[in-house]
Design a protein around this nucleic acid. Sequence first.
DNA 1: ATTCGATGCGCGTCGGAGTGCCGAAGGAGA
DNA 2: TCTCCTTCGGCACTCCGACGCGCATCGAAT
Lengths: 180, 180
Amino acid sequence: MAQNSKRVDMDRVDGLILSELTANARVSQVDLSARIGLSSTAIARRQRALEEDGIIRGYQAVLDLGRFGLAVTVIVRITLESQSDDALKAFEAGVIDCPSVVRCFLMSGSDDYIVTVLARDIEDFEHIHRTELSRLPRVARIESSFALREVVSRAVPPVVFSASAAPKHKPPSPRRPTRR
Amino acid sequence: MAQNSKRVDMDRVDGLILSELTANARVSQVDLSARIGLSSTAIARRQRALEEDGIIRGYQAVLDLGRFGLAVTVIVRITLESQSDDALKAFEAGVIDCPSVVRCFLMSGSDDYIVTVLARDIEDFEHIHRTELSRLPRVARIESSFALREVVSRAVPPVVFSASAAPKHKPPSPRRPTRR
DNA sequence: ATTCGATGCGCGTCGGAGTGCCGAAGGAGA
DNA sequence: TCTCCTTCGGCACTCCGACGCGCATCGAAT
């Protein structure tokens, strides 16, 4: 049914784990357990299960791209001159190698791509347009729009943390505080 | 000059550190030092400096959103009925609370926003359109395009890892292998 | 020549991760 | 309804690894 594996089944605790790990991937198991309110053993088991199930694909550092001077985001709509299969393949192979491209979607409807480009400033984008974008094969038209401000930027929509609030086994009702 | 702080100065080793950490944020310092070829002390110092300088903003887990059924990406262009300041503010305050929105840019040119929405399928997007998007204030027009495929998806453009290849002090020419 | 900056190495300590065992709770079956 | 089984959580323990520090060294810049 689904693409590669079965659908996920999560409870509230798994959602909390994912929420914490998407906020801070380097948090230790004991800190996680303290935040969530479960023992570190259970947290470690669940986190390991989430990793092995492939729900957690990995952990990555988030960089401040503004510190690199990449302050301008440009949304570029590119139309190919042909919708043939090898035209798509050639274009996509080229756009993957563009070092200023961070996202590229093949869109439905008209046969075009939406490409997100990061640039230092306007004239840097002009340079990117000349050296990267217009050298892409089979391109018929390039239309650029500049982003003035990034209002929302989330890696994960908040809807996944609350997905399937059904508990896995029980509500752990009378939980004794972890003494030491 | 820049927005909040000075421009970055990095050498090749810092770029390697950032490259490794964006690929795997949970790598330990000794593993990092083994991959890069510097001692773990230097790696730890540089990583700490990168964190304290704010170049590394944090670490986050990457989830497989397909496992949550979020298989459809929709690019939505929203035009407001007014370009007044409080119209923008009201719309942005509303779009931040939309749980299916992962990205939103205020675009130049015409007074509109480009919003990226994740949905389970077409009819889920229809539901999102009804319950989230069309309830946003001051909206005049909503135009949706469906993404068929994600060709490129990078958090960080590869250009930053090679930024400013000037070494910080010296090229560590005769490096003895780390014996043990 | 001197000073500064960065690296390399060794050491010690602290903390995290993994394991085994037990208990509790829920579900299934008779 | 009773019993068995499965599953998950909690606790204690051990071990190994990471992290941080201090000092010596080397190179470069002034």
